[in-house]
């Protein structure tokens, strides 16, 4: 297995994963979406809500706010030894905002005050509700560690996906330039002896095969490499993109060793 990183920023990553089969790439994708646990608000005790939104709507909006999570410090609630929730799997946040008379005030995710300074909203500028003069929102929210397969609010990876690395072969080209004109992504250009793939543009190929159709003499063939994948992923902010990949791999490893232990006992 080989990884070649194309882009890596705080919230997104793009890399080539090679020498693995599609099952492994798909396993990694599914783990990022559903099996990397994160913190999200799960219970809300509302003390006062005179805003326009119903209590349930406020609770849903709060739940969808991504919270910065440290992977090792919390245990997923369903795997914790407690039943009611304990400091190992839950954390409490409070919110208290009132709009002064005659003024409007927007409640932002940044107004959530956490019991642990490390746990806070990943983006502090997410509007929760707009309050008109005199309206008030006071509540306590309990965040739990959970899995993306139970609810989208625990989903750490956003828009994770992959495609095969394209393979373009050109043989016996007669320089008619039809394939160059047909390509919607400007991947081909005319060289001295035949049409050529433009440097660094190969990965933009969408495998549409319009160049193959345009070629009158079947000189061009487009196929996909079955063992190399261009992987794209975004994080919702609860982890950085790098942490998300590492946590996903660790999750797969833990699951594999659990399976190995179970099989060993049979």
């Amino acid at each position: 297995m080989d990884i070649d990183i194309l882009e890596l920023s705080d919230r997104s990553a793009r890399f080539i994963l090679s020498d693995v089969d599609a099952a492994f790439a798909n396993g990694l994708r599914r783990t990022m979406l559903a099996d990397v646990p994160t913190l999200a608000i799960d219970e809300v005790n509302i003390y006062n809500n005179t805003s326009v939104l119903y209590d349930e709507q406020v609770a849903l909006r709060l739940a969808l706010v991504p919270l910065l999570t440290s992977f090792d410090e919390f245990t997923p609630h369903e795997e914790c030894s407690c039943e009611e929730g304990c400091p190992a799997c839950t954390i409490s946040l409070t919110l208290s905002v009132e709009a002064p008379m005659g003024e409007e005030k927007t409640v932002y995710s940044g107004d959530l005050v956490s019991a642990d300074p490390k746990v806070k909203a990943a983006d502090s500028n997410i509007p929760v509700v707009k309050l008109k003069g005199g309206q008030q929102l006071v509540l306590e929210a309990i965040a739990k560690m959970g899995y993306g397969h139970d609810h989208a609010k625990w989903q750490a990876g956003v828009a994770c996906g992959y495609k095969n690395v394209p393979v373009i072969n050109i043989e016996g080209c007669d320089l008619c330039e039809k394939c160059v004109e047909a390509c919607p992504r400007d991947i081909l250009a005319l060289g001295e002896e035949s049409a050529e793939v433009v440097d660094d543009r190969l990965l933009n190929c969408s495998l549409c095969k319009q160049c193959v159709e345009a070629c009158g003499i079947d000189a061009i063939s487009v196929s996909e490499n079955d063992t190399s994948f261009i992987f794209t992923l975004e994080s919702d902010g609860s982890y950085s993109a790098e942490e998300l990949i590492i946590n996903a791999v660790n999750t797969i490893r833990t699951k594999a060793s659990t399976l190995d232990n179970i099989l060993g006992e049979l």
């Binding site: 939104l53 509700v129 989208a152 956003v158």
Partner: peptide, 19 residues
Amino acid sequence: MLPVRCFTCGKVIANSWED
């Protein structure tokens, strides 16, 4: 209020609304 996340992919979008 704009939904906090995109219905389809889950990206947080509400923080882009005011801008």
